[in-house]
Amino acid sequence: MALNADRQPVDGADDGPLPCGRSLEAVWEGTVERGRSPAAEAAHRGSCPHCSAALADLRTLDALVTAARELDPPGGTDALTARVMDVVRLELRPGRTLPLGTRPDDTGWIFESAAARELRAAADGLPGIRAGSCRVRPLDVGAAEVGQGRGPLRVHVEVAASLEALPTAAEAVRGALFAVAERVLGMDVREIDVRVVDVLHEDMGTDGTGTGHGPEGSAG
């Protein structure tokens, strides 16, 4: 990853494509990149040594995770698998970075996806709340250009709330997320914009019948 003139990391592909031009992520997930036809991709992957090697790696990786399950870790094997794949997915899709630390000589950054993961988890931990998408942006887009991109931030989060949690949802989510931004991350979050986009029925999932069938569980 390169640094631009202001020493802010520039978004880019993580490890670069395979020698044949395909992305490792697309091969592993069996998806077809934009602009390619599924039929042509299937034909390519069947004959390409790079894609075949990558798929073989994935099968071995799968076997390693299966073997790791036998170690019976605390939290259960499903939790371990989920955490492993969570980290793998995060590392394959870095995305934009956010400044860490507020001192003048601080130079740390965190990927938005990593920060959003912590923020969403904090909302999910609240009773009657399920986190949806979470985005972190500069508080003042204009000023961000001047301050080398290390200025204060605003969080946009969407949640589903149960009827019981609804009256205090925004306040509870705001409180939880401010705490995470300060104690877990050390990020200068000044405003948190909470939108309740769906009603949560604890026993039935979200209300798909009426208003506000908003996005939920996005990568954030």
Binding site: M1, L3, P9, V87, E91, G108, W109, F111, A114
Partner: peptide, 8 residues
Amino acid sequence: TAIVTGIV
């Protein structure tokens, strides 16, 4: 410059 890719 240190960049955090995740918290584990």
